[in-house]
Design a protein around this nucleic acid. Structure first.
Lengths: 219, 219, 219, 219
DNA sequence: AAATAACCGAGACGGTACGTCCGGTCTTATG
DNA sequence: CATAAGACCGGACGTACCGTCTCGGTTATTT
């Protein structure tokens, strides 16, 4: 005879099970990796909306509960997977704490970095999960904030640093706010990529840098 | 006059394409409007992901099939509803063929328009459906393209027109591509709003216009 | 025919999914019982055609999928429920291996059993599901065969046994086929009950037994 | 389960009908026939449960309303169609008011009629609709009564007449109730056919007549 | 001959239920 | 005690039909 544990009826505020955080030391790294891989693969293959927790579990050879035990939603699985993918890529490139190069020529440095960004945005391995996460983040604010804080903002900070160096060197007006300034060339690229409002290319980002540095009005 | 007293039942050319195309002339305008209103209301109240076709139908007092007969998905319902909302707003403002004002002072004109845009983006009536459609458009490419073509691109074209007028007047360098130039101040605003990458305000858009027109480098 | 068919990927009458058979050892007996009870109650209350799978699930406090996981249709649910009801009734009566009594007086024994059958047929607890199953079985042949094999035929076999005993005792002509003979009094009762072709009563079944045993022709 | 579509404002005594019975003189006989044919064809082809009013209308090239204007349900359409089929068959056979032949040999006459009935029951043209109507009648009592009154009872009355003649001629005991007596051989056949409880054949019905007339007990 | 009235084919409509899918929780048995 | 497996309750999906309700178009009768 099976005994069913008495359900806790006492707590009216008991909406979600406040089961204690599981013991992370006993976590199966094999499962964790399999889940990340399955999530990335499914998003790439069938798209984000058709990617389901059940599908990820089946593909990873994992029980559904193993996913729900460690992640609150499929978006968070994908976020971790994408973050891990980025770290892996960075490790492969052998890059320690990344900085935008400073050759003394601000325009050239920015163009080089943006060209690399264009190449990455067009890489199908990155495109599907990145776009999916961005979309989810628009509508799911906590995830959006995490996405921005963990992925976007660190990248943008590199531009802030480079622009501040340029200000010190006299290549950028000292009254300019670097956090706003960087958006002049970063946001157009982001919008074209996200919303398909135009083609993206090296020539395009070069133009953005020129316009942003020199302005539209005649000098 | 063609008399056909005997309907020929044995006609082999039975080309009556049935469920494919319903008869639009018999469409109930009352239902159509009720569905649009319900969709907008639900997105505003419970958010896009929790808005369901069943919910829209129930709220509109309509059968589900009446939605599926005319729209392929809830995203398309919302797109039409949002488009209609925009047209309604334009009709209320009496501005049929809208243009960006041209007072001769490009910076002032752009700042005025962008301040109005900021106000609109912060209006909760617009925010929920617009964000939802943008998010869906990222991941559902046909819808995204329709969203861009019907809503975004017409707006951007107004900037192109105004910038071209400024080029004719000598206020903008003649070699500048207006379609790219507008992105210097439009895209940053779009990204901050969509991805919560920073606060948006009149001061912010004023700054964007100043930076974009005059550039970041010292003159 | 201009009917748009549902896209079928496999067999002609493909209705249910081809998922692997679920693990019966993990089946919830509580749900099973609740579904049976709900099905019987609903058939009794609103009739078979208005009994729906959704209604059964709601009444039983069960997900619809739990019904579809274990039964192919509402008819099969009802069949199991009715079978279980019969077994329960038999258990309550403590009559495990049931037989028609043999007092030596065949006519009296048959009349007694048929009177009890009349009482059962007029019991509203049995009538609604029995009639519903019989109706469904007419048109749904597999179910009909199961209904006959599991419910009807075992009952009829009891008459075969009793008639054979009577043949051994010389009360029935030895050349008579008992399987056919029993129909002379069982089938008329069944038809009157099923098709409302006449009233059923103890007097009626007594008469049937007399006619069947002694024949219609003068002796 | 709530039902309330048409409030009956005219009270129980429907004298002045608001939605009056339509003018039968203007009824389209072409449509009527097409509907009957379509109903019979569909029941034969896809079975009664999958036969729908919409399907009948489409097959008949008729608007749905034309069916609902003249019949209350698909069961009634089928009943009329089946009745008409029977009349047509009778007309084809050139039979005026039918009687069971009276050659003086009751057993022979009954066997002949029952052999013809067996043949009819095995005719697939009759089987599908007849079984469907019988099934519907089990669960839909008004229809069942109409089915019995219009189809079954008139047939049974013929046996009553023949048995009474036999009583007058001394071939049947005068105290026998013919309405019950006929069930001894008719009901077994009906049950075997309806419920597949056994094979039906000429030999089987011959046996039934013999058993019924002479009884089961030794003489 | 024109006007009227009803039936007719067609099919959109508000609904109900279908059978499926998946979300998130819970249970069972392994290791 | 985490895990793989998967049954469970719930609820939305998109489809099929129900029975009702217009909408022209065609007859058939009335004016």
């Amino acid at each position: 005879m099976v005994k069913k544990p008495t359900p806790d009826r006492a707590g009216p505020d008991r909406v979600t099970s406040d089961r204690a955080t599981p013991d992370a030391t006993r976590r199966s790294d094999r499962s964790r990796r399999a889940i990340r891989d399955a999530a990335l693969a499914l998003v790439a293959e069938v798209g984000y909306p058709k990617t389901t927790v059940e599908g990820i579990a089946a593909r990873a050879g994992v029980g559904k509960q193993t996913i729900y035990r460690w992640w609150p939603s499929k978006a968070d699985v994908l976020l971790e997977a994408f973050l891990a993918l980025g770290e892996q890529a960075a490790r492969d490139a052998g890059q320690e704490p990344y900085r935008i190069p400073d050759t003394g020529d601000l325009a050239a440095d920015l163009k080089a970095v943006l060209r690399a960004t264009v190449d990455e945005l067009l890489d199908p391995r990155f495109e599907a999960p990145a776009r999916a996460l961005a979309a989810e983040g628009l509508v799911n604010e906590p995830l959006g904030r995490e996405f921005v804080a963990k992925l976007l903002e660190p990248q943008l900070q590199l531009y802030v640093d480079r622009l501040r160096a340029a200000q010190d060197a006299g290549g950028v007006r000292p009254d300019v706010d670097p956090r706003i300034a960087l958006e002049l060339f970063v946001s157009p690229l982001a919008q074209r990529w996200l919303q398909h409002t135009g083609p993206i290319s090296h020539a395009y980002t070069d133009t953005l840098v020129d316009y942003a540095l020199n302005g539209l009005a005649p000098r």
